[in-house]
Amino acid sequence: MTDASRPLLTVDHLTMRFGGLVAIDDVSFDAHPSEITAIIGPNGAGKTTVFNCLTGFYKPTEGMLTLNRGKRSFLLERMEGHDIAGHAGIARTFQNIRLFSAMSVLENLLVAQHRSLMAASAGSFAGLFGLPSYRHAHRTAIDKAKGWLDRVGLTHRADEDAGNLPYGDQRRLEIARAMCSDPVLLCLDEPAAGLNPRETQGLNELIVGIRKDFGTGILLIEHDMSVVMQISDHVIVLDYGRKISDGTPDQVRADPAVIRAYLGEEDEDTAVTANAAAGP
C-alpha cells in the first residue's frame, strides 16, 4: 500500500436521504489505485446507494466526493452522470445486470468505447463518409474489444445477442464492457451473485488480473465472503447507512461490531465461534 500517494477516491461525510429515510449516514472512506476496496453489509445497508452517488445517478444530500485522476481532481457530486463516466473515469456494473440485450456481445463492448469513437467520427461526418481516420479508430476499438473478449473467454460468442448468454457470461461481459471505457475506478455491484463456485473462482482471477494489469482501483460490493476475504485489500462495513468498520479483511473479520451486525446481538455463541474462526 502506498500511503504516501494521494487516494484515488475520497468519500467525505457522504449522506443520502430519501425523504425521511437515511440511506447513507455520514460515511467517509478512501480508495486507492491498484487496490480492491470491498464494501460489505447486510441487505439494505446502503451499499448500492453509495455507488449511485459516486456514479451520478443520485445527487448526495451532503458530503464531498473527490476523484483524483493524474494531476486532476474531480468533484463528483457536481458533475453530470455521463461526465463522471467519461471524464473522471468511473465505470460500474449493476446489481441486476444491465446489458444491451438485443445487441451483440461485440457491440456491447463498442458502445462502451462510444466517447473515443465519437470523437474519431467527428460528429458522425468522418464516419458517414468512411474517412481513414475513422476506419482506423474503428479497427482499434474492435481490437480492444477482442482483447477483452479473450480475457473473459467470450470470443467465440462475440456475434451472439448479449441477452442470450448464460448468466455467468453476462456478468463477465458486463465487467469487460465497463473496462472498455478505460476507467481509473471500477465499481462492481455484487459480481459474484448467482455464480457457482467455479465461476466465482474465475471471477476472482479476472478482478485480480484487472488490478494487476491496468492498475485500476476497484470498489467491490459483495455478499460472498470467500470473494471478499480472498481478494480485497481493504474492507468497509456498512450497516443501516453507517460505517461500522474499516480495515484489512482480518481486522474487519475480528471486529465485534461487524459480528454483531451480521449475526445479531443476542447470539453470543455464534459470535464467539466466528471470532475464534477469525483466528489470531
Binding site: 451520478g56 455521463h82 463516466a85 467519461g86 444491465r98 464492457r177 465497463a178 471505457s181
Partner: peptide, 8 residues
C-alpha cells in the same frame, strides 16, 4: 441507465 454509466 447503462448508457449513462458508459459516459454516453
Amino acid at each position: 441507465v447503462a448508457c449513462q454509466s458508459l459516459g454516453i
